[in-house]
Simulated assay, not measured.
Amino acid sequence: MDKKKFIMSYSCGKDSTLALYRMIEQGHTPLALMITINKKNNSSWFHNISSNHMRDVANSLDIPLMLIQCEGDEYEASFSEALSKFKEMGADSCVFGDIDIEAHREWCTKRCAEANIEPIFPLWQENREDLVHEFIDKGFKATIKIVNLNYLSSEFLGKTLNREIVEIIKKEGADPCGENGEYHTFVYDGPLFRYPITFKVLDKLEKDNYGILSID
């Protein structure tokens, strides 16, 4: 692969962090972290990370941060528009942390086609459990931020992701990598970070069948 100047579609979670790590290790250059923000609560879609924590992460990674604010019905158009702007700024590709859900890849590929930018999926079709083990073994640190209560109890919230926790998640009948949405993580330290992100746990909440770790 030629050396890329890429935008990272970033969630602050483990899969996008591992994809970012691989791209940097291969000599590609990240121009920005692109994170979509829910206008209603000023936190990231899906992982519920506050904008303050996102800025801390971007500063530690030493990568510019681009926040894309949108409502739910604006999400698709806002994503494509942002990619077009990045294309004008010199980006030739956008990187995603998706593993093997074809509908996700199709959606990302369409948004990139609309912006005339190349989609890259560094983790695609690799073994899910191997990927989560790679993330852990590389030295990244992540806390479990959200759980789908259909699969995992709120007791998992705030747990540091390690091999032992992955085994417990498997025994609960959930996917070890959480690729089906069983859980989401907040990555706060690791080989890409200049310093760890500090945070304080405020509460564990339950809403719409999801457990959410509230942090400050």
Rank of each mutant, 00 (worst) to 15 (best):
L61C: 03
P64V: 11
E76V: 11
S80C: 09
Q69N: 09
V57A: 11
A91Y: 10
S60Q: 15
A91M: 05
G72H: 13
D98V: 12
D62A: 14
A82F: 06
E74M: 10
L61I: 06
M54C: 15
D98W: 10
S51Y: 04
Y75I: 05
F86G: 00
F86V: 00
A58C: 07
Q69T: 05
D100C: 13
M66S: 14
S60G: 14
R55C: 01
Y75N: 06
M66R: 10
L83Y: 01
Y75V: 06
G97Y: 11
R55W: 00
L67Y: 05
A77D: 15
S51W: 02
I99P: 08
E88K: 15
I63Y: 04
Q69M: 01
L67F: 06
L65M: 03
V57M: 14
E71P: 06
L61R: 02
E76A: 12
N52H: 04
C94H: 07
N59C: 07
E81G: 08
S51H: 05
L61S: 04
A58T: 05
N59W: 03
I99M: 08
L83F: 00
S60C: 15
E102D: 14
F79H: 13
A77W: 04
S84H: 06
C70Q: 04
D92C: 04
M54E: 03
E88G: 06
C94P: 03
D98M: 10
E76I: 07
L67N: 12
D56R: 12
M89C: 07
S93N: 05
L65N: 01
K87N: 09
D56L: 13
H53V: 08
V57K: 00
I63T: 07
A91P: 09
I63D: 05
P64D: 11
K87F: 03
V57F: 00
D100K: 13
S60N: 13
L65E: 01
R55P: 00
L61Q: 04
D56W: 00
M89D: 12
E74V: 08
G90S: 13
S93M: 11
K87G: 01
S84W: 01
H53T: 11
D56M: 10
N59L: 10
S93K: 10
I99A: 08
R55G: 00
V95M: 09
D92H: 08
C94S: 14
D73W: 15
K85C: 00
L65F: 02
L65I: 03
S80N: 06
E76R: 12
I63K: 02
G72D: 12
E74K: 08
A82C: 11
E81N: 15
A77H: 05
E81V: 09
R55K: 15
L83K: 00
P64C: 14
M66T: 13
N59F: 09
D92S: 11
S78Y: 03
E81P: 02
V57T: 11
E102G: 02
M54A: 05
E76K: 13
S51T: 15
N52F: 04
N52E: 10
G97H: 14
E102A: 14
A91N: 10
S93I: 07
A58R: 06
S84I: 09
S84D: 02
